[in-house]
């Protein structure tokens, strides 16, 4: 029994799964889940919550598979949208929030010295702390644009807002992040030279 062709599109794999081909499950899981998990981690700042959101989003994908219309939309866009809405729902149910710094992965570059790696880690921690200080919609837009590298039209579809609104959110979010991090430049090892 052969593995499904990894050159198949996400659409094609989902159709295979809906028609009972279990081999498509692993391929789809490894293609879509990491992105979903990564963006949830950045938006929520909490590993356990990100895992819950990812599992729930993927469960919704499996359940809607029989009704998926190939070619009408990007499956990844659909999944991002579900994940972002789940993140919003989760935060609305909570009072306050906190940053789980363990949610930020350590840099894996072994060519850098320990001190440099610690500094990189500190900078990534600072980025996540700063992200958590943004209003939720700004944070989602900035993460989708500058970390997931989605286009403004794609983000518009995910967040169900106009392209102009996406541009406004990402511009304001980025300015706010720069201002937050400016106060920590010396601590994070940035020089003026």
């Amino acid at each position: 029994m052969g593995e499904p062709d990894s050159n198949l599109s996400d659409d094609a794999l989902l159709v295979l799964y809906a028609n009972g081909d279990g081999r498509a499950v692993q391929e789809l899981t490894m293609r879509l889940s990491p992105r979903c998990f990564g963006v949830a981690m950045r938006v929520l700042g909490n590993r356990a919550e990100a895992e819950d959101v990812t599992q729930e989003a993927m469960m919704r994908l499996w359940r809607m598979a029989p009704n998926w219309q190939p070619g009408q939309a990007q499956l990844s866009t659909w999944l991002y949208r579900v994940a972002m809405n789940l993140c919003i729902d989760l935060k609305r149910r909570q009072r306050g929030g906190y940053v789980d710094l363990d949610a930020v992965p350590e840099p894996a570059d072994t060519s850098r010295s320990a001190a440099e790696q610690m500094q990189d880690g500190a900078r990534q921690d600072a980025l996540q702390v700063a992200l958590m200080q943004l209003p939720e919609r700004q944070r989602q837009a900035v993460v989708l644009r500058h970390i997931e590298e989605l286009t403004n039209p794609e983000i518009s579809g995910i967040m169900d807002i106009s392209v102009e609104a996406v541009e406004s959110l990402t511009a304001r979010g980025k300015r706010a992040l720069a201002a937050i991090l400016a106060g920590r430049r010396e601590e994070l090892g940035y020089s003026d030279g």
Binding site: M30, S33, P34, F37, G38, M41, R42, A50, T54, A103, P105, E106, P107, A108, D120, R123, Q124, A126, L127, H146, I147, E149, K174, L177, A178, A179, L181, A182, R185, Y190
Partner: peptide, 19 residues
């Protein structure tokens, strides 16, 4: 400041959280 922020974004993309 914007350039430093862009560098942080690049580093974030280069270190995706493993599933």
């Amino acid at each position: 400041a914007m350039q430093e922020l862009d560098d942080l974004f690049t580093a974030a993309r280069d270190t995706p959280a493993p599933l």
